[in-house]
């Protein structure tokens, strides 16, 4: 069995759907996803979650990764009367659709997928374009003000010369847990696995606990960007998402 330290689509897509509907009052969302394997599974989770809480998508469209002009799909979103744009796209297309939505003057909320929080995504956009964009993520190291997190972020920047994202933090937490397992006397891979699957483990990003299927991470955050810089704020935390609403 493989062990995952990063929340799966079932978890983060629940957070994305719930944030849109419960916090932003979205009733008629549009889903834009990618025609890749990543896009295909995330889109299904997003649709399932939205429908379950009574906000069936009014428009769903899957885009090829090579699409350069987001105008056609944005025009469709406009015409569909959607009241929010929910994205499940890779990094480049996420930035591209935000840029083109801003150029078009589309003024409905944009709630993006985890790719938004990869540092290279925000780097593609101007802060003015990012203003008001929200996204789901497993965690957001750069947004967190706690002492421990700031230490992690500084150390990461020093070591890798780039901004840490949720994946980086997930890997860090995972490695720490394995080290803790070894310190607690685990000698074989199986013993490490057993250690990880019992009890809960406090990590920097969240508290980890196995669901018996190897998924350790069940928390997600929603981050939003302001107009000044490319550092998002955490606006909502979701804990213990089972992935089954």
């Amino acid at each position: 069995m493989s062990i995952g330290f990063f929340p799966g689509d079932a978890v983060v897509k629940t957070a994305q759907a719930r944030y849109a509907v419960e916090e932003r009052g979205v009733k008629r969302p549009a889903i834009i996803s990618q025609t890749t394997a990543y896009g295909q599974s995330g889109r299904a989770e997003l649709e399932r979650n939205l429908t379950a809480i009574g906000a069936s998508p009014v428009l769903q469209e899957a885009l090829d990764i090579s699409v350069k002009d987001m105008l056609p799909v944005l025009l469709k979103v406009q015409r569909s009367g959607a009241d929010a744009l929910l994205l499940h796209l890779h990094s480049g297309p996420t930035a591209l659709i935000i840029r083109h939505a801003r150029a078009l003057g589309l003024d409905i909320p944009i709630i993006a997928g985890s790719a938004m929080h990869q540092p290279e995504t925000a780097a593609l956009l101007e802060p003015a374009e990012l203003n008001g964009v929200c996204a789901e993520s497993g965690s957001s190291p750069v947004s967190d003000d706690s002492e421990e997190m700031r230490e992690f972020v500084d150390a990461y920047r020093r070591s890798f010369d780039r901004e840490p994202d949720a994946f980086a933090l997930g890997q860090y937490d995972g490695a720490k847990m394995i080290l803790a397992a070894l310190a607690a006397g685990a000698k074989t891979a199986d013993e490490v696995r057993t250690h990880l699957q019992t009890a809960s483990h406090a990590g920097l990003a969240m508290n980890y606990r196995s669901d018996g299927k190897g998924n350790m991470a069940h928390s997600a955050v929603i981050i939003c960007y302001g107009a000044e810089d490319r550092v998002p704020q955490i606006v909502k935390r979701y804990e213990n998402l089972t992935g089954t609403l």
């Binding site: 025609t35 295909q40 599974s41």
Partner: peptide, 10 residues
């Protein structure tokens, strides 16, 4: 794109 038959991108 013909997901029902080809399984799509997956």
């Amino acid at each position: 794109n013909w997901e029902p038959v080809t399984g799509g991108a997956n």
